[in-house]
Design a protein around this nucleic acid. Structure first.
Length: 656
DNA sequence: TCACGGAATATTTTT
DNA sequence: TATTCCGTGA
């Protein structure tokens, strides 16, 4: 996305008038450029604005842009901020180094992995790959017995990842969070040991490894640490409340002698504890960097007062937080609404009719969002929206590159790139008729044992039953040459090979075939296969299946359905929060531990603070919960009992 | 050994 | 919704 013409030249740009465009706290945060700085930024208080201006200010002051490191939660966030700074100042800002901790880790490790004894050409395992590998080891190690079910590979991956991110042993994770699996602890530990060994032997890095090895590199190699830290004179970190211990430690080592580090965050919006984030990081920051200046941004520029009245009540229930009270100068607005529905479908019908009503009042669809706790909470609503032909985009949940058919194609490309990628071999072999796990393993062993790479496949003699399918694969492998072929041709060949498999496997293959065409369009932008594969793992197009590019292009008029986690940082004129039912939100599982419950509370706070003018909670009544063995019929405890004057109650029936 | 069908199950999610 | 798991029969 390079627009050369629209951005004007450097010399004639007048100095930015910071004093006029920022309030006094923001201004202070922007102009305090030296030394450690902690900015506590409440919801809607202009956090992004502050960061953007600060980048511009530094560059304007003559700091070389490529010595500024801007670490954010997603890559998109970094790109957007750099783009805004560029618009504000000039194109020098495009040179600012921005990205996520993981992409930064990737960058550094590609350069220095050999210092840790790794091949800098390591392949990255995404979530699905990691699970696949764990699945293979899980079976292979005979942990699965017939008497009792052993934890699923997904659960195992979760446990391992949490242990790494919290820097605690697996044992502790299981004790704390999975006490019912304690009897399988030993088996789990040995699977993890195997998993680690396998990864390092085969030069696979999973996402967590990108952090762990970056940390290790900085810790164990002072001369490299010095080289890196002295090349970044100014470090800024967004969403600091959602960083974990490893990331904090990385920052500690990364920060050079000048201590020019600034972090921004809101402890009340920390919602990623389930993956190891620790909101206390933000409180411990001043201890990590003595002499830290603290600035709070408390003026809210987003919501009307009636909404803030409610969100302040919500967050007041939190036990542990930096106290702050948001205020706004935006007047007017109506009281938030709590709507009781009879059942899930009643709730959906209410939301649909309310949306239609808002549209008639002239509110654009893209100014409305429906938020929920979990991806599947919107299934029923999606059916009703389709019925009424209201167009929507769903954010969160399954992602494009994680869908099976995309992974299938990528797996073919991966074995072409690396013939010893067992995970990918298994995946593509299992797609072939008459080949199951046992045969796949035999074939892989032939490939590995003779160190013969593709030849191992070509020489294998197949049973007549599976010969047809296997021969097709042999033909593909032998005709393809990734050193010679342009990447696009390679992609075409693989997809051509895969299409018949796709048709046999999925009823909805036309839709999926379209996805593959989009994948091909992405491949065409690359010239290097392994770079393409790394990017697909590290910065995949982050929309749900089916709307591959839709969400990247400027919003056309569509309703947004999103998980609360994906709604972070965004805002809408009208926000619905569905399933605000006690037992679903907070979920029953979170009731046992106070810290889990606290996180649910912050999640509710994040959801509610997304609204500018209208905030509507709904909950279905009479939902039977199998786990609890009881009927759920109360609104979420976080908003239950709030007086009518602040949260008006109504029944869906009267409103439809 | 593999395919197939039905049942169970699911936080949340970025990298 | 869409996997994943497990039993069964070929």
């Amino acid at each position: 996305m390079k627009k050369k013409s629209s951005l004007s030249n450097i010399s004639s740009t007048p100095r930015i008038r910071y004093e006029e465009q920022l309030n006094s706290s923001q201004l202070q945060a922007v102009t305090t450029t030296e030394g450690p700085l902690l900015v506590i930024a409440g919801a809607g208080s202009g956090k992004t604005r502050t960061l953007t201006y600060r980048v511009a200010r530094l560059v304007e002051d003559g700091v070389s842009p490529d010595t500024i490191l801007l670490l954010t939660f997603t890559r998109k966030a970094a790109q957007q901020m750099i783009l805004r700074a560029t618009k504000l100042l000039d194109r020098r800002c495009e040179k600012v180094a921005g990205g996520t901790f993981h992409s930064f880790g990737n960058l550094i490790l590609r350069k220095y992995a050999s210092a840790l004894g790794f091949n800098p050409g390591f392949a990255i395992l995404d979530r699905v790959d990691a699970e696949a590998l764990i699945g293979i080891l899980r079976k292979e190690m005979g942990s699965v017995t017939r008497q009792r079910s052993f934890p699923r590979k997904r659960t195992l991956a979760n446990i391992f990842s949490r242990a790494v991110n919290k820097m605690i042993p697996v044992e502790e994770v299981v004790c704390d969070d999975y006490p019912h699996l304690e009897s399988d602890l030993e088996a789990m530990i040995s699977i993890q040991r195997e998993y680690k060994r396998y990864k390092s032997e085969h030069h696979f890095f999973d996402f967590d490894d990108l952090l762990v090895y970056l940390q290790q590199l900085l810790k164990m190699h002072p001369e490299i640490r010095h080289r890196i830290s002295s090349s970044f004179g100014y470090i800024m970190v967004d969403e600091y409340q959602d960083t974990n211990k490893i990331q904090a430690d990385i920052l500690y080592h990364l920060t050079g002698a000048n201590q020019n580090i600034m972090v921004v965050g809101d402890d009340s919006q920390s919602i990623y504890a389930f993956r190891g984030a620790n909101f206390r990081n933000i409180m411990q920051f001043p201890r990590m960097f003595p002499g830290t200046r603290i600035i709070s941004l408390e003026e809210n520029y987003r919501s009307v007062q009636p909404i803030l009245d409610l969100t302040n009540i919500i967050i007041d229930q939190a036990k542990e937080k930096y106290s702050k009270k948001l205020f706004t100068r935006i007047t007017g607005g109506s009281t938030p609404l709590l709507v009781e529905a009879v059942d899930e479908n009643d709730q959906s019908l209410f939301v649909v009719s309310k949306i239609q009503q808002l549209c008639r009042q002239g509110i654009a669809l893209d100014q409305i969002a429906v938020l929920f706790r979990a991806g599947y909470h919107s299934f029923d609503l999606e059916i009703e929206l389709n019925r009424e032909q209201i167009s929507f985009v769903k954010v969160g949940g399954f992602k494009f590159v994680e869908s099976a058919h995309i992974k299938d194609v990528l797996a073919h490309l991966r074995v072409i790139s690396n013939p010893y990628d067992r995970i990918s071999w298994y995946r593509i072999l299992l797609l072939i008729e008459k080949i199951g796990p046992a045969t796949a393993q035999k074939i892989y062993e032939s490939i590995r044992n003779e160190a013969s790479g593709y030849d191992g496949l070509l020489t294998i003699k197949s049973k007549s039953s599976s010969a047809a399918g296997l021969n097709r694969l042999k033909r593909l492998i032998s005709t393809v040459d990734f050193h010679q072929m342009p990447l696009a041709k390679l992609g075409e060949a693989v997809i051509e090979y895969y299409l018949p498999i796709l048709e046999g496997k999925y009823d909805d293959h036309p839709k999926r075939a379209k996805d593959l065409q989009q994948l091909l369009a992405i491949i065409e932008r690359y010239t290097d296969l392994s770079l393409f594969l790394t990017d697909m793992a590290l910065e995949p197009p982050n929309t749900s299946v089916g709307d591959t590019f839709a969400a990247d292009t400027p919003a056309d008029d569509r309703l947004t359905l999103t998980t609360i986690h994906s709604a972070k940082g965004l805002e809408w004129h009208t926000v619905f929060i569905i399933w605000a039912l006690d037992g679903r939100f907070p979920s029953t599982q979170s009731l046992y531990k106070e810290e889990d419950l606290e996180e649910e509370l912050r999640l509710m706070y994040v959801a509610a603070t997304r609204a500018r003018e209208n905030l509507i909670f709904t909950y279905p009544n009479q939902i039977y919960d199998r786990m609890m063995g009881m009927e759920l019929d109360r609104p979420s405890r976080f908003i239950d009992g709030v007086p009518q004057s602040i949260l008006a109650k109504q029944s869906a029936r009267f409103l439809i």
